Computed example of a mutant assay.
Amino acid sequence: MKIKHSILFVFVLFLIISCDKKRVFDEYKSVGNTWHKDSIVSFDLPKLDPKKSFNLYVNVRDNDDYPFNNLFLIVSLEQPNRQTKVDTLEYQMTNPDGTLLGDGFSDIKESKLFYKGKAAFTQKGIYKVHIKHANRQTGKIEGVTSLPGISDVGFRIESTE
């Protein structure tokens, strides 16, 4: 009986992986139970074909402890020549009734948040991505110190072909 379950598991895993043909890079990092405002999540990107273009996404796993409708992120794309392109982004995280957007069957939802389309990586060397949150409470200047409800932050690269 164990062999049948193992074969079934391998088959299901193979189906999941093979259905994701556009994926070039997909990695998550845990931020614990809360995401501190000074915690920067960083990724070293793999070598990418300079003749191709790619769609870039920030992935977020959140749960019902997330207290806001929106999520504000500062995403920095560091190029091999040390030039850095910085974007401040806002994403809708809940439906109008307050339920979380995203995929998942439990109280943990996974959101694939569009970052850049048709990006090219033409320089030789290592590209890095740095992500931090920039949430603020209404009427407050200082950012939220600890952002509850976010457990993992990821970065995904997909082929445009």
Rank of each mutant, 00 (worst) to 15 (best):
N135G: 02
F11Y: 12
K29F: 12
D64K: 14
S30K: 09
D20W: 13
V24M: 10
K118Q: 15
N33M: 12
S18D: 10
L15R: 07
Y66I: 05
T34D: 06
L113A: 09
A119E: 14
V24R: 14
D87P: 02
T84L: 00
G102N: 03
N59K: 15
T34H: 02
F14C: 14
D87F: 01
A120P: 01
F54D: 03
G32D: 07
P46R: 12
Q83H: 14
Y91R: 10
E90A: 09
D65I: 01
V24F: 06
Y66F: 15
S30Y: 08
R82I: 01
P50M: 08
I16D: 00
I131M: 03
D65H: 12
D44L: 05
N69M: 05
L48R: 01
Y57V: 01
K112F: 12
V129I: 15
K47H: 08
K118P: 04
K29C: 02
R23W: 00
D20C: 12
E110V: 12
D20K: 13
S106R: 10
N135F: 02
Q83F: 09
V41M: 04
E90C: 08
G102E: 03
L101G: 01
F25D: 08
L73G: 04
F105D: 01
K132W: 07
I74S: 09
K47E: 13
Q123H: 08
Q92P: 02
N95V: 02
V60G: 05
N69E: 00
K112D: 05
T34V: 13
I108A: 09
Q123L: 15
K37G: 01
I131K: 02
K85C: 03
G104F: 08
Y91Q: 05
D97N: 15
R23C: 09
E110Y: 06
T84Y: 02
K112T: 12
P46H: 06
K52R: 09
G102K: 04
S53R: 13
F114Y: 06
K118N: 14
K128L: 02
A120F: 06
I74H: 06
L77E: 03
E90K: 08
I74F: 00
F121T: 13
T99M: 11
S76F: 02
K21D: 09
Q123Y: 11
P96H: 03
S76E: 14
N33I: 04
K109Q: 09
F72C: 04
P96T: 03
D87Y: 01
K47M: 13
V86F: 04
A134E: 11
S39N: 13
